[in-house]
Design a protein around this nucleic acid. Structure first.
Lengths: 102, 102
DNA sequence: GTTCAATATGTCGAATCTGATATAAAGTCA
DNA sequence: TGACTTTATATCAGATTCGACATATTGAAC
């Protein structure tokens, strides 16, 4: 299994292959993925709250629908930088970002 | 002036060239840079608190002294991803990260 | 001032991330 | 069911970021 896929699954709570493999994620790595998924979820919720399609959001963020989909899915190719910049662009206050990542 | 340099200066509170130019940073961009610098500062403080040199921290983070220097300086080539992962590796709790970015 | 340790800066090839495109899959409604 | 909209996935070329290295600058002790 590719490491990316593994991490994605593990991040969603699935111990892949063995408990050992799951535990191979350091606390730092685990927390980081957890933060990323929280930001993904927040972006998705924010979009729905504004009743936009991914295509509309993409336009607002000056990117593509496919990247928005990946952002909302927590795809490994998406950085925390991109997620945070996107949320800030949607006028989510820093305070709220702080809550999201805690 | 190169945009990177400009942004670095502006982020540190310097209106470069003109007030207009300064205001050209959107609130989202400004907040993002502000967050990044806050994380940089936190990393630097965390290292000093642990009485490490940049070279020692670099070893701990499996990177180089020069990158640590850039992280602490808020160099444009450093992502929020890297800063957050570094702080998490130093066992800074997510709660504290949240405070840092607010 | 000189020496030595620490930090900063410039550069580069490799790795990663980006927006974009194409297309598949899933959802909605008649 | 089929037509249509929305979301998900795969891929890629160009851009960005990475660790590493070399070297410059700063700082501290003598």
């Amino acid at each position: 299994m590719k490491p990316d896929k593994k991490k994605r699954l593990e991040a969603k709570g699935w111990a892949v292959g063995s408990a050992d493999e799951f535990l191979n994620l350091s606390k730092a790595e685990f927390d980081f993925i957890e933060m990323k998924l929280a930001l993904s979820k927040a972006l998705s919720e924010q979009r729905r709250h504004s009743r936009m399609t991914q295509a509309e959001l993409a336009k607002r963020l000056k990117t593509s629908q496919s990247r928005v989909a990946k952002m909302e899915k927590g795809d490994p190719s998406v950085t925390v930088d991109l997620l945070i910049r996107s949320l800030l662009t949607l006028d989510v206050p820093k305070k709220q970002l702080a809550e999201i990542i805690s």
